[in-house]
Write a protein that binds this DNA or RNA. Sequence first.
RNA 1: UCCUCAGUAGCUCAAUGGUAGAGCAUCCGGCUGUUAACCGGAGGGUUGUAGGUUCGAGUCCUACCUGAGGAGCCA
Length: 501
Amino acid sequence: MRGHQRTGRSPPGRGADPFNRLPRCGGERCFKLDSMPERPIADVLAGTVAVESRVRVKGWVRTRRDSKAGFSFLQVSDGSCFAALQVVADKALPNYSTEVLHAGPGCSVSVSGTLVDSPGRGQRVELRAEELIVLGRVEQPDTYPISPKRHSFEFLREVAHLRPRTNTFGAVARVRHCLALAVHEFFDQNGYLWIHTPIITASDTEGAGELFRVSTLDLSRLPMTAGGEPDYSRDFFGREAFLTVSGQLNVEAYCQALSRVYTFGPTFRAENSNTSRHLAEFWMIEPEMAFADLSANADLAEALLKHLFRAVLERRPDDMEFFDKRIHRGAVARLQAVVDKPFERLTYTDAVRILQRSGRRFEFEVSWGADLHSEHERFLTERHVKGPVVVTNYPKGIKPFYMRVDDGGETVAAMDVLAPGIGEIIGGSQREERLEVLDRRMAECGIEPQPYGWYRDLRRYGTVPHAGFGLGFERTISYVTGMANVRDVIPFPRTPGNADY
RNA sequence: UCCUCAGUAGCUCAAUGGUAGAGCAUCCGGCUGUUAACCGGAGGGUUGUAGGUUCGAGUCCUACCUGAGGAGCCA
Protein backbone atom coordinates (compact mmCIF):
# COMPACT_ATOMS: atom_id res chain seq x y z
CA MET A 1 0.00 0.00 0.00
CA ARG A 2 1.26 3.38 -0.84
CA GLY A 3 1.00 6.69 0.90
CA HIS A 4 0.31 5.58 4.37
CA GLN A 5 2.55 7.79 6.40
CA ARG A 6 0.88 9.55 9.24
CA THR A 7 1.12 13.28 8.90
CA GLY A 8 1.83 13.31 12.62
CA ARG A 9 5.23 11.79 11.95
CA SER A 10 6.65 14.97 10.48
CA PRO A 11 9.77 16.30 12.23
CA PRO A 12 9.07 17.60 15.71
CA GLY A 13 9.17 21.10 16.93
CA ARG A 14 8.71 22.96 13.67
CA GLY A 15 4.98 23.51 13.75
CA ALA A 16 4.52 20.87 11.08
CA ASP A 17 3.01 18.57 13.64
CA PRO A 18 -0.76 18.98 13.46
CA PHE A 19 -1.05 18.58 17.22
CA ASN A 20 1.01 21.73 17.66
CA ARG A 21 -1.46 23.66 15.58
CA LEU A 22 -4.41 22.87 17.79
CA PRO A 23 -5.68 25.93 19.63
CA ARG A 24 -4.31 25.99 23.14
CA CYS A 25 -6.49 26.26 26.17
CA GLY A 26 -6.57 25.88 29.91
CA GLY A 27 -4.32 28.54 31.30
CA GLU A 28 -1.33 30.64 30.58
CA ARG A 29 1.14 27.84 31.18
CA CYS A 30 -0.11 26.23 28.01
CA PHE A 31 1.35 29.05 26.02
CA LYS A 32 4.83 28.63 27.37
CA LEU A 33 7.22 28.53 24.45
CA ASP A 34 9.90 25.93 24.63
CA SER A 35 11.59 23.40 22.44
CA MET A 36 9.76 20.36 23.83
CA PRO A 37 8.51 18.32 20.87
CA GLU A 38 4.85 17.37 21.16
CA ARG A 39 3.77 14.03 19.71
CA PRO A 40 0.71 11.83 19.35
CA ILE A 41 0.80 8.87 21.71
CA ALA A 42 0.64 6.56 18.69
CA ASP A 43 4.02 7.85 17.58
CA VAL A 44 5.51 7.61 21.06
CA LEU A 45 4.43 3.99 21.42
CA ALA A 46 5.38 3.09 17.86
CA GLY A 47 9.01 3.78 18.63
CA THR A 48 9.45 6.93 16.57
CA VAL A 49 10.45 8.80 19.71
CA ALA A 50 13.87 7.73 20.96
CA VAL A 51 14.19 6.35 24.47
CA GLU A 52 15.87 8.87 26.79
CA SER A 53 14.64 11.77 24.65
CA ARG A 54 12.23 14.39 25.93
CA VAL A 55 8.69 14.68 24.64
CA ARG A 56 5.31 16.21 25.48
CA VAL A 57 1.97 14.47 25.10
CA LYS A 58 -1.54 15.77 25.65
CA GLY A 59 -4.57 13.68 26.31
CA TRP A 60 -7.05 12.42 28.88
CA VAL A 61 -6.44 10.32 31.96
CA ARG A 62 -7.98 6.87 31.77
CA THR A 63 -6.93 5.62 35.21
CA ARG A 64 -4.55 6.60 37.96
CA ARG A 65 -2.85 4.29 40.44
CA ASP A 66 -0.95 5.78 43.36
CA SER A 67 2.00 4.27 45.13
CA LYS A 68 2.84 5.43 48.60
CA ALA A 69 6.45 4.93 47.67
CA GLY A 70 5.92 8.41 46.32
CA PHE A 71 4.67 8.30 42.74
CA SER A 72 1.60 7.73 40.62
CA PHE A 73 0.93 5.88 37.41
CA LEU A 74 -1.44 7.54 34.96
CA GLN A 75 -2.75 5.91 31.80
CA VAL A 76 -3.08 8.75 29.29
CA SER A 77 -4.92 8.40 26.01
CA ASP A 78 -5.22 10.84 23.12
CA GLY A 79 -7.17 8.63 20.70
CA SER A 80 -4.33 8.26 18.21
CA CYS A 81 -4.09 4.52 18.90
CA PHE A 82 -5.72 1.89 21.04
CA ALA A 83 -3.12 1.82 23.78
CA ALA A 84 -2.69 4.45 26.44
CA LEU A 85 0.71 5.78 27.49
CA GLN A 86 1.82 5.10 31.05
CA VAL A 87 2.97 8.28 32.72
CA VAL A 88 4.98 8.04 35.93
CA ALA A 89 4.54 11.12 38.12
CA ASP A 90 6.90 11.49 41.07
CA LYS A 91 5.98 13.26 44.30
CA ALA A 92 8.81 15.66 43.59
CA LEU A 93 6.56 17.39 41.07
CA PRO A 94 5.57 20.73 42.60
CA ASN A 95 1.85 20.09 42.06
CA TYR A 96 1.95 16.40 43.02
CA SER A 97 -0.25 16.52 46.10
CA THR A 98 -2.37 19.46 44.95
CA GLU A 99 -3.17 18.33 41.40
CA VAL A 100 -1.66 15.01 40.32
CA LEU A 101 -3.24 13.06 43.18
CA HIS A 102 -6.63 14.42 42.10
CA ALA A 103 -6.23 13.86 38.36
CA GLY A 104 -8.73 11.05 37.93
CA PRO A 105 -10.43 9.45 34.94
CA GLY A 106 -11.50 11.98 32.30
CA CYS A 107 -9.15 14.82 33.27
CA SER A 108 -7.24 16.41 30.41
CA VAL A 109 -3.51 16.74 30.91
CA SER A 110 -0.35 17.94 29.28
CA VAL A 111 2.68 15.90 30.26
CA SER A 112 6.28 16.69 29.47
CA GLY A 113 9.08 14.38 30.39
CA THR A 114 11.60 11.81 29.35
CA LEU A 115 10.62 8.64 27.57
CA VAL A 116 12.25 5.69 29.33
CA ASP A 117 12.27 1.91 29.16
CA SER A 118 9.60 0.65 31.52
CA PRO A 119 10.75 -1.65 34.33
CA GLY A 120 7.19 -2.85 34.80
CA ARG A 121 5.36 -5.46 32.80
CA GLY A 122 2.62 -4.46 30.40
CA GLN A 123 4.35 -1.72 28.45
CA ARG A 124 7.66 -1.28 26.69
CA VAL A 125 8.15 2.38 27.43
CA GLU A 126 6.73 4.96 29.79
CA LEU A 127 6.91 8.71 30.20
CA ARG A 128 8.69 9.95 33.31
CA ALA A 129 6.93 13.23 33.94
CA GLU A 130 8.93 16.38 34.55
CA GLU A 131 5.88 18.60 34.24
CA LEU A 132 2.26 17.52 34.50
CA ILE A 133 -0.38 20.18 33.88
CA VAL A 134 -4.03 19.43 34.54
CA LEU A 135 -5.78 21.33 31.77
CA GLY A 136 -9.35 20.38 32.64
CA ARG A 137 -10.64 18.65 35.75
CA VAL A 138 -13.70 16.44 36.06
CA GLU A 139 -16.34 17.97 38.23
CA GLN A 140 -18.31 15.52 40.37
CA PRO A 141 -16.22 12.39 39.62
CA ASP A 142 -18.82 10.23 41.37
CA THR A 143 -21.35 10.88 38.60
CA TYR A 144 -18.94 11.11 35.63
CA PRO A 145 -20.57 8.57 33.31
CA ILE A 146 -17.37 7.12 31.87
CA SER A 147 -16.05 5.61 35.06
CA PRO A 148 -13.37 2.92 34.73
CA LYS A 149 -15.75 -0.02 34.75
CA ARG A 150 -17.81 -2.01 32.27
CA HIS A 151 -20.72 -0.18 30.70
CA SER A 152 -23.53 -1.53 28.58
CA PHE A 153 -23.77 -0.20 25.03
CA GLU A 154 -27.38 0.77 25.76
CA PHE A 155 -26.19 3.06 28.53
CA LEU A 156 -23.38 4.52 26.44
CA ARG A 157 -25.85 5.41 23.67
CA GLU A 158 -27.48 7.73 26.19
CA VAL A 159 -24.18 9.56 26.60
CA ALA A 160 -23.20 9.60 22.94
CA HIS A 161 -21.08 12.71 23.45
CA LEU A 162 -18.91 10.93 26.02
CA ARG A 163 -18.75 7.40 24.65
CA PRO A 164 -15.83 8.11 22.26
CA ARG A 165 -13.73 8.22 25.46
CA THR A 166 -14.14 4.49 25.93
CA ASN A 167 -11.85 1.83 24.48
CA THR A 168 -14.61 0.41 22.34
CA PHE A 169 -15.86 3.59 20.73
CA GLY A 170 -12.36 4.93 20.18
CA ALA A 171 -11.53 1.72 18.35
CA VAL A 172 -14.74 1.94 16.32
CA ALA A 173 -13.92 5.50 15.29
CA ARG A 174 -10.43 4.55 14.11
CA VAL A 175 -11.68 1.51 12.19
CA ARG A 176 -14.47 3.55 10.62
CA HIS A 177 -11.94 6.11 9.46
CA CYS A 178 -9.64 3.40 8.14
CA LEU A 179 -12.49 1.82 6.17
CA ALA A 180 -13.65 5.15 4.73
CA LEU A 181 -10.15 5.91 3.49
CA ALA A 182 -9.84 2.40 2.05
CA VAL A 183 -13.08 2.85 0.12
CA HIS A 184 -11.75 5.91 -1.65
CA GLU A 185 -8.37 4.29 -2.11
CA PHE A 186 -9.91 1.20 -3.74
CA PHE A 187 -11.99 3.16 -6.20
CA ASP A 188 -9.20 5.61 -6.99
CA GLN A 189 -6.81 2.75 -7.74
CA ASN A 190 -9.41 1.19 -10.04
CA GLY A 191 -10.17 4.29 -12.07
CA TYR A 192 -13.45 5.32 -10.41
CA LEU A 193 -14.45 8.94 -9.91
CA TRP A 194 -16.08 10.02 -6.68
CA ILE A 195 -19.32 11.79 -7.61
CA HIS A 196 -20.97 14.03 -5.03
CA THR A 197 -24.59 13.20 -5.68
CA PRO A 198 -27.18 15.51 -4.12
CA ILE A 199 -28.51 15.16 -0.59
CA ILE A 200 -31.76 16.93 -1.51
CA THR A 201 -33.69 15.23 -4.27
CA ALA A 202 -37.12 15.33 -5.85
CA SER A 203 -37.36 11.72 -6.94
CA ASP A 204 -37.64 8.57 -4.91
CA THR A 205 -35.38 5.79 -6.17
CA GLU A 206 -37.53 2.86 -5.14
CA GLY A 207 -40.95 4.37 -5.62
CA ALA A 208 -41.48 3.87 -1.92
CA GLY A 209 -42.86 6.48 0.42
CA GLU A 210 -40.40 6.46 3.32
CA LEU A 211 -38.80 9.87 2.78
CA PHE A 212 -37.89 12.82 4.94
CA ARG A 213 -39.49 15.94 3.53
CA VAL A 214 -37.36 19.04 3.04
CA SER A 215 -39.45 22.18 3.22
CA THR A 216 -39.30 25.81 4.28
CA LEU A 217 -43.08 26.16 4.41
CA ASP A 218 -44.59 27.30 7.71
CA LEU A 219 -46.19 24.10 9.03
CA SER A 220 -48.66 26.06 11.14
CA ARG A 221 -49.84 28.11 8.15
CA LEU A 222 -49.52 25.83 5.13
CA PRO A 223 -50.47 27.41 1.80
CA MET A 224 -53.15 25.26 0.20
CA THR A 225 -54.16 24.63 -3.37
CA ALA A 226 -57.77 24.93 -4.56
CA GLY A 227 -57.93 21.15 -4.21
CA GLY A 228 -57.12 21.32 -0.49
CA GLU A 229 -53.58 19.98 -0.83
CA PRO A 230 -50.46 21.71 0.45
CA ASP A 231 -49.23 24.05 -2.27
CA TYR A 232 -45.66 22.95 -2.81
CA SER A 233 -45.27 25.37 -5.73
CA ARG A 234 -44.82 27.95 -2.97
CA ASP A 235 -42.11 25.87 -1.30
CA PHE A 236 -38.37 26.59 -1.54
CA PHE A 237 -37.74 24.50 -4.65
CA GLY A 238 -41.13 25.24 -6.20
CA ARG A 239 -41.97 21.58 -5.80
CA GLU A 240 -41.79 18.76 -3.28
CA ALA A 241 -38.30 17.87 -2.11
CA PHE A 242 -36.84 15.14 0.08
CA LEU A 243 -33.61 13.87 1.61
CA THR A 244 -32.04 11.30 -0.67
CA VAL A 245 -32.68 7.60 -0.13
CA SER A 246 -30.00 6.65 -2.66
CA GLY A 247 -27.60 8.36 -5.01
CA GLN A 248 -27.98 5.59 -7.56
CA LEU A 249 -30.11 7.33 -10.18
CA ASN A 250 -27.91 10.42 -10.15
CA VAL A 251 -24.72 8.44 -10.26
CA GLU A 252 -26.04 6.45 -13.22
CA ALA A 253 -26.13 9.73 -15.15
CA TYR A 254 -22.42 10.30 -14.52
CA CYS A 255 -21.71 6.65 -15.24
CA GLN A 256 -23.12 7.14 -18.73
CA ALA A 257 -20.33 9.62 -19.48
CA LEU A 258 -17.43 8.81 -17.17
CA SER A 259 -17.73 5.00 -17.19
CA ARG A 260 -16.61 4.27 -13.64
CA VAL A 261 -18.07 6.31 -10.80
CA TYR A 262 -19.23 5.99 -7.22
CA THR A 263 -20.94 7.92 -4.48
CA PHE A 264 -20.15 7.71 -0.79
CA GLY A 265 -22.24 9.82 1.50
CA PRO A 266 -25.15 10.00 3.92
CA THR A 267 -28.52 8.52 3.04
CA PHE A 268 -31.86 8.96 4.78
CA ARG A 269 -34.81 6.64 5.29
CA ALA A 270 -37.87 7.65 7.31
CA GLU A 271 -38.90 4.05 7.88
CA ASN A 272 -40.10 3.19 11.35
CA SER A 273 -37.73 0.29 11.70
CA ASN A 274 -36.33 -0.62 15.08
CA THR A 275 -33.61 -3.19 14.57
CA SER A 276 -29.91 -3.57 15.14
CA ARG A 277 -29.33 -3.20 11.38
CA HIS A 278 -31.25 -0.01 10.50
CA LEU A 279 -30.66 3.69 10.93
CA ALA A 280 -32.65 6.68 9.72
CA GLU A 281 -29.37 8.30 8.66
CA PHE A 282 -26.64 6.03 7.37
CA TRP A 283 -23.75 6.08 4.92
CA MET A 284 -23.77 4.18 1.70
CA ILE A 285 -21.22 3.39 -0.97
CA GLU A 286 -22.70 3.10 -4.46
CA PRO A 287 -20.43 2.32 -7.41
CA GLU A 288 -21.75 2.26 -10.94
CA MET A 289 -19.83 0.95 -13.96
CA ALA A 290 -20.61 1.19 -17.64
CA PHE A 291 -20.11 -1.66 -20.14
CA ALA A 292 -20.58 -4.16 -17.37
CA ASP A 293 -22.94 -7.01 -16.54
CA LEU A 294 -24.06 -8.72 -13.33
CA SER A 295 -21.03 -10.97 -13.19
CA ALA A 296 -18.66 -7.98 -13.32
CA ASN A 297 -20.80 -6.38 -10.65
CA ALA A 298 -20.30 -9.33 -8.32
CA ASP A 299 -16.58 -9.29 -9.07
CA LEU A 300 -16.43 -5.63 -8.09
CA ALA A 301 -18.35 -6.22 -4.86
CA GLU A 302 -16.03 -9.04 -3.88
CA ALA A 303 -12.88 -7.09 -4.71
CA LEU A 304 -14.10 -4.06 -2.76
CA LEU A 305 -14.98 -6.01 0.38
CA LYS A 306 -11.69 -7.88 0.30
CA HIS A 307 -9.76 -4.65 -0.09
CA LEU A 308 -11.56 -3.11 2.86
CA PHE A 309 -11.00 -6.09 5.14
CA ARG A 310 -7.35 -6.37 4.15
CA ALA A 311 -6.83 -2.67 4.86
CA VAL A 312 -8.25 -2.94 8.39
CA LEU A 313 -6.26 -6.08 9.18
CA GLU A 314 -3.04 -4.43 8.03
CA ARG A 315 -3.51 -0.95 9.43
CA ARG A 316 -5.50 -1.33 12.64
CA PRO A 317 -4.11 -4.49 14.22
CA ASP A 318 -4.32 -2.90 17.68
CA ASP A 319 -8.04 -2.15 17.42
CA MET A 320 -8.80 -5.46 15.69
CA GLU A 321 -7.04 -7.36 18.46
CA PHE A 322 -9.35 -5.63 20.93
CA PHE A 323 -12.48 -6.50 18.93
CA ASP A 324 -11.23 -10.06 18.55
CA LYS A 325 -10.67 -10.48 22.29
CA ARG A 326 -13.43 -8.43 23.88
CA ILE A 327 -16.26 -7.89 21.39
CA HIS A 328 -16.43 -10.85 19.03
CA ARG A 329 -14.23 -13.89 19.44
CA GLY A 330 -12.74 -14.85 16.11
CA ALA A 331 -13.37 -11.51 14.40
CA VAL A 332 -9.86 -11.43 12.93
CA ALA A 333 -9.94 -15.02 11.70
CA ARG A 334 -13.34 -14.40 10.15
CA LEU A 335 -12.07 -11.42 8.17
CA GLN A 336 -8.92 -13.24 7.17
CA ALA A 337 -10.99 -16.17 5.86
CA VAL A 338 -13.10 -13.83 3.74
CA VAL A 339 -9.98 -12.26 2.27
CA ASP A 340 -8.43 -15.63 1.49
CA LYS A 341 -11.14 -17.45 -0.42
CA PRO A 342 -13.50 -16.66 -3.30
CA PHE A 343 -17.08 -15.70 -2.53
CA GLU A 344 -19.68 -18.38 -3.11
CA ARG A 345 -22.24 -17.46 -5.78
CA LEU A 346 -25.75 -18.86 -6.05
CA THR A 347 -28.74 -18.03 -8.19
CA TYR A 348 -31.95 -17.32 -6.36
CA THR A 349 -33.39 -20.47 -7.93
CA ASP A 350 -30.51 -22.56 -6.54
CA ALA A 351 -30.86 -20.90 -3.16
CA VAL A 352 -34.54 -21.80 -3.01
CA ARG A 353 -33.70 -25.38 -3.88
CA ILE A 354 -30.99 -25.55 -1.19
CA LEU A 355 -33.38 -24.16 1.42
CA GLN A 356 -36.15 -26.56 0.43
CA ARG A 357 -33.81 -29.54 0.61
CA SER A 358 -32.14 -28.42 3.85
CA GLY A 359 -34.57 -30.42 5.95
CA ARG A 360 -35.05 -27.44 8.24
CA ARG A 361 -38.38 -26.09 9.33
CA PHE A 362 -38.57 -22.39 8.64
CA GLU A 363 -41.16 -20.06 10.08
CA PHE A 364 -41.82 -18.79 6.57
CA GLU A 365 -42.22 -21.29 3.81
CA VAL A 366 -39.70 -21.17 0.98
CA SER A 367 -41.28 -21.02 -2.44
CA TRP A 368 -40.01 -19.75 -5.75
CA GLY A 369 -41.28 -16.22 -6.30
CA ALA A 370 -41.36 -15.13 -2.66
CA ASP A 371 -38.59 -13.00 -1.21
CA LEU A 372 -36.09 -14.63 1.10
CA HIS A 373 -36.70 -13.90 4.77
CA SER A 374 -34.00 -13.14 7.32
CA GLU A 375 -34.03 -16.72 8.56
CA HIS A 376 -33.43 -17.99 5.01
CA GLU A 377 -30.59 -15.57 4.39
CA ARG A 378 -29.04 -16.49 7.71
CA PHE A 379 -29.20 -20.19 6.89
CA LEU A 380 -27.52 -19.64 3.54
CA THR A 381 -24.67 -17.51 4.83
CA GLU A 382 -24.21 -18.91 8.35
CA ARG A 383 -24.96 -22.62 7.89
CA HIS A 384 -24.71 -23.51 4.22
CA VAL A 385 -21.78 -21.39 3.02
CA LYS A 386 -20.33 -20.25 6.39
CA GLY A 387 -19.14 -17.01 4.81
CA PRO A 388 -20.26 -14.30 2.42
CA VAL A 389 -22.48 -15.47 -0.41
CA VAL A 390 -23.74 -13.69 -3.52
CA VAL A 391 -27.31 -14.53 -4.46
CA THR A 392 -28.30 -13.51 -7.99
CA ASN A 393 -31.18 -13.45 -10.48
CA TYR A 394 -34.20 -12.88 -8.27
CA PRO A 395 -37.79 -13.06 -9.54
CA LYS A 396 -38.67 -9.72 -11.09
CA GLY A 397 -41.85 -9.41 -9.05
CA ILE A 398 -39.93 -8.73 -5.84
CA LYS A 399 -37.37 -6.30 -7.26
CA PRO A 400 -37.55 -2.64 -8.40
CA PHE A 401 -38.19 -1.41 -11.92
CA TYR A 402 -34.64 -0.43 -12.87
CA MET A 403 -33.15 -3.92 -12.66
CA ARG A 404 -32.43 -5.58 -15.99
CA VAL A 405 -34.88 -8.28 -17.05
CA ASP A 406 -33.10 -11.58 -17.77
CA ASP A 407 -33.59 -13.65 -20.89
CA GLY A 408 -36.71 -15.63 -20.20
CA GLY A 409 -38.39 -12.64 -18.59
CA GLU A 410 -39.05 -14.20 -15.19
CA THR A 411 -36.02 -12.97 -13.29
CA VAL A 412 -33.90 -9.83 -13.12
CA ALA A 413 -30.14 -9.38 -12.95
CA ALA A 414 -30.17 -8.56 -9.23
CA MET A 415 -27.66 -9.57 -6.61
CA ASP A 416 -27.49 -9.48 -2.83
CA VAL A 417 -24.34 -10.13 -0.87
CA LEU A 418 -25.19 -11.79 2.42
CA ALA A 419 -22.82 -11.91 5.38
CA PRO A 420 -22.99 -14.00 8.56
CA GLY A 421 -24.48 -12.13 11.48
CA ILE A 422 -25.54 -9.17 9.37
CA GLY A 423 -27.62 -10.51 6.53
CA GLU A 424 -27.78 -8.32 3.48
CA ILE A 425 -24.71 -6.12 3.28
CA ILE A 426 -24.89 -5.30 -0.43
CA GLY A 427 -27.82 -4.98 -2.81
CA GLY A 428 -27.27 -4.30 -6.49
CA SER A 429 -28.06 -5.16 -10.06
CA GLN A 430 -27.32 -4.79 -13.70
CA ARG A 431 -29.56 -1.90 -14.75
CA GLU A 432 -32.18 -2.05 -17.48
CA GLU A 433 -30.60 -0.23 -20.42
CA ARG A 434 -33.38 -0.94 -22.98
CA LEU A 435 -35.86 1.92 -23.01
CA GLU A 436 -38.86 -0.11 -24.11
CA VAL A 437 -38.24 -2.74 -21.41
CA LEU A 438 -37.72 -0.02 -18.80
CA ASP A 439 -41.00 1.64 -19.74
CA ARG A 440 -42.84 -1.66 -19.53
CA ARG A 441 -41.35 -2.35 -16.09
CA MET A 442 -42.26 1.12 -14.82
CA ALA A 443 -45.82 0.53 -15.94
CA GLU A 444 -45.88 -2.89 -14.25
CA CYS A 445 -44.59 -1.37 -11.03
CA GLY A 446 -47.11 1.46 -11.22
CA ILE A 447 -44.50 4.19 -11.47
CA GLU A 448 -45.32 7.52 -13.11
CA PRO A 449 -42.86 8.01 -15.99
CA GLN A 450 -43.07 11.80 -15.84
CA PRO A 451 -40.62 12.45 -12.95
CA TYR A 452 -38.17 9.99 -14.51
CA GLY A 453 -37.83 11.81 -17.82
CA TRP A 454 -34.17 12.51 -17.29
CA TYR A 455 -33.56 8.91 -16.25
CA ARG A 456 -35.25 7.68 -19.44
CA ASP A 457 -33.06 10.09 -21.44
CA LEU A 458 -30.03 8.05 -20.39
CA ARG A 459 -31.54 5.15 -22.37
CA ARG A 460 -32.46 7.36 -25.31
CA TYR A 461 -29.00 8.82 -25.84
CA GLY A 462 -26.20 6.31 -26.21
CA THR A 463 -27.41 3.69 -23.76
CA VAL A 464 -24.99 0.97 -22.59
CA PRO A 465 -25.20 -2.02 -20.31
CA HIS A 466 -24.21 -0.96 -16.82
CA ALA A 467 -24.37 -2.21 -13.28
CA GLY A 468 -23.82 -1.13 -9.71
CA PHE A 469 -24.66 -1.78 -6.08
CA GLY A 470 -25.11 -0.22 -2.68
CA LEU A 471 -22.90 -1.20 0.24
CA GLY A 472 -24.12 -0.19 3.68
CA PHE A 473 -21.15 1.40 5.41
CA GLU A 474 -22.39 0.81 8.96
CA ARG A 475 -23.19 -2.82 8.22
CA THR A 476 -19.67 -3.20 6.88
CA ILE A 477 -18.17 -1.74 10.06
CA SER A 478 -20.48 -3.93 12.09
CA TYR A 479 -19.23 -7.02 10.28
CA VAL A 480 -15.58 -6.01 10.57
CA THR A 481 -15.65 -5.18 14.28
CA GLY A 482 -18.25 -7.67 15.44
CA MET A 483 -20.22 -4.80 17.01
CA ALA A 484 -23.71 -6.26 17.01
CA ASN A 485 -25.68 -3.03 16.56
CA VAL A 486 -25.18 -0.44 13.82
CA ARG A 487 -26.15 2.24 16.35
CA ASP A 488 -22.74 1.62 17.91
CA VAL A 489 -20.62 2.07 14.78
CA ILE A 490 -21.86 5.56 13.80
CA PRO A 491 -20.95 8.48 16.07
CA PHE A 492 -24.43 9.90 16.64
CA PRO A 493 -27.09 7.38 15.58
CA ARG A 494 -30.46 8.59 14.30
CA THR A 495 -33.34 6.18 14.87
CA PRO A 496 -37.10 6.69 15.25
CA GLY A 497 -37.70 8.98 18.21
CA ASN A 498 -34.02 9.60 18.74
CA ALA A 499 -32.03 12.58 17.44
CA ASP A 500 -30.40 14.00 20.57
CA TYR A 501 -26.93 15.46 20.31
C1' U B 1 -45.65 -0.91 13.04
C1' C B 2 -46.22 -6.06 15.38
C1' C B 3 -44.51 -9.88 19.12
C1' U B 4 -41.54 -10.87 23.59
C1' C B 5 -38.74 -9.15 27.66
C1' A B 6 -36.99 -5.30 30.89
C1' G B 7 -37.10 -0.36 33.72
C1' U B 8 -34.65 -0.38 41.72
C1' A B 9 -27.92 3.88 43.94
C1' G B 10 -23.48 7.02 38.78
C1' C B 11 -23.31 1.79 36.26
C1' U B 12 -24.63 -3.79 36.40
C1' C B 13 -28.09 -6.30 39.11
C1' A B 14 -30.66 -8.68 43.98
C1' A B 15 -34.93 -8.28 47.21
C1' U B 16 -42.15 -15.02 49.05
C1' G B 17 -47.32 -8.78 49.04
C1' G B 18 -44.41 -7.23 55.24
C1' U B 19 -37.54 -2.74 57.79
C1' A B 20 -34.53 -1.24 49.94
C1' G B 21 -29.38 -4.67 49.42
C1' A B 22 -24.70 -6.30 46.83
C1' G B 23 -20.67 -5.75 43.25
C1' C B 24 -18.24 -2.06 40.43
C1' A B 25 -17.45 3.28 40.24
C1' U B 26 -16.71 7.76 43.51
C1' C B 27 -14.53 9.97 48.16
C1' C B 28 -11.36 9.02 52.68
C1' G B 29 -7.60 5.80 55.06
C1' G B 30 -3.96 1.58 54.58
C1' C B 31 -0.54 -1.27 51.39
C1' U B 32 2.00 -1.79 46.85
C1' G B 33 6.88 -0.36 40.19
C1' U B 34 1.39 -0.20 39.75
C1' U B 35 -1.39 -1.85 35.30
C1' A B 36 -9.18 -5.88 35.68
C1' A B 37 -4.58 -3.92 41.60
C1' C B 38 -5.47 -5.33 46.81
C1' C B 39 -7.51 -4.37 52.25
C1' G B 40 -10.77 -1.21 55.44
C1' G B 41 -14.43 2.73 55.89
C1' A B 42 -18.02 6.46 54.10
C1' G B 43 -21.52 8.98 51.16
C1' G B 44 -25.13 7.77 47.59
C1' G B 45 -32.69 5.85 46.60
C1' U B 46 -39.69 9.94 45.06
C1' U B 47 -37.98 1.55 42.92
C1' G B 48 -39.77 4.99 34.72
C1' U B 49 -44.79 8.03 34.95
C1' A B 50 -50.09 8.22 36.31
C1' G B 51 -53.96 5.63 38.37
C1' G B 52 -56.02 1.14 40.87
C1' U B 53 -56.37 -3.45 44.32
C1' U B 54 -54.73 -4.22 49.56
C1' C B 55 -54.23 -3.25 56.62
C1' G B 56 -49.67 -2.94 53.74
C1' A B 57 -47.06 -2.58 46.74
C1' G B 58 -40.27 -2.50 44.23
C1' U B 59 -43.44 -6.98 43.94
C1' C B 60 -50.38 -7.70 41.83
C1' C B 61 -53.83 -4.99 37.92
C1' U B 62 -54.62 -0.95 33.92
C1' A B 63 -52.76 2.85 30.78
C1' C B 64 -48.70 5.50 29.10
C1' C B 65 -43.29 6.46 28.45
C1' U B 66 -38.35 4.53 27.58
C1' G B 67 -34.91 0.68 26.22
C1' A B 68 -33.44 -4.19 24.33
C1' G B 69 -34.13 -8.72 21.32
C1' G B 70 -36.89 -10.76 17.24
C1' A B 71 -40.14 -9.79 12.81
C1' G B 72 -41.48 -6.66 8.61
C1' C B 73 -38.92 -2.93 5.34
C1' C B 74 -34.10 -2.62 3.59
C1' A B 75 -28.30 -0.98 3.18
